[in-house]
Simulated scan of single mutants.
Amino acid sequence: MSLGDLGGLVYSTEAGRMCPDCRHPVAQCVCKALAKAVPAGDGVVRVSRETKGRGGKAVTVVKGVPVDADALVALGKQLKAACGSGGTVKDGVIEVQGDHCTAVIALLQKQGHTVKRAGG
């Protein structure tokens, strides 16, 4: 078993606490800057309706929104409020409970996004 198997360097007498992900000193950690970066994509927001793995319940899924993580959470909250239902934002995807594709597409187009209906 080596030091790399244990998760890497955690503390250095030279630099202090070390970030376990990027291996830089905590004061110079670049993980948060990388997490806030806008995901690369084709600039088209895709809206679809899924039922798979949800007990037959319909969920409106929004993928490919070219904004950072904080703005994605705010957009998800705005979409859920406009549709009057719950939902979540995870892994760069907004999920709104229920079949609200037309309302979501209209709201995203009003905000200036290029939107396509994906799926059937």
Rank of each mutant, 00 (worst) to 15 (best):
E14S: 09
R46E: 01
G16F: 05
V62Y: 00
G92A: 07
H100G: 01
L79A: 10
V67W: 01
G64T: 09
G92F: 02
A33S: 12
S2R: 14
V47R: 04
G4I: 14
T114L: 00
K52M: 15
G16L: 02
R54Q: 08
L107Y: 06
C83R: 05
L72D: 02
A74R: 14
G87F: 05
V10R: 06
P39S: 09
D5Y: 06
C83G: 07
G53P: 07
A27D: 14
P66D: 00
K63R: 15
C83W: 04
A81T: 13
A35L: 07
V45H: 05
K52Q: 11
H113V: 03
L6M: 14
K63H: 08
V89F: 02
C22S: 10
C29V: 03
Q97E: 15
L79C: 11
C101W: 05
G86T: 09
A40K: 12
P39I: 03
V93W: 01
D99G: 02
E50S: 12
G120I: 01
V44I: 15
T51Q: 15
V44A: 10
L6Y: 14
V26T: 07
A15L: 07
G16H: 04
T51A: 12
L3Q: 07
H24P: 09
G8V: 07
G16M: 04
V44T: 11
K32Q: 10
V73N: 14
L79M: 13
V38I: 05
D42W: 02
R117S: 07
K52A: 14
I105N: 03
G64N: 11
A15Y: 10
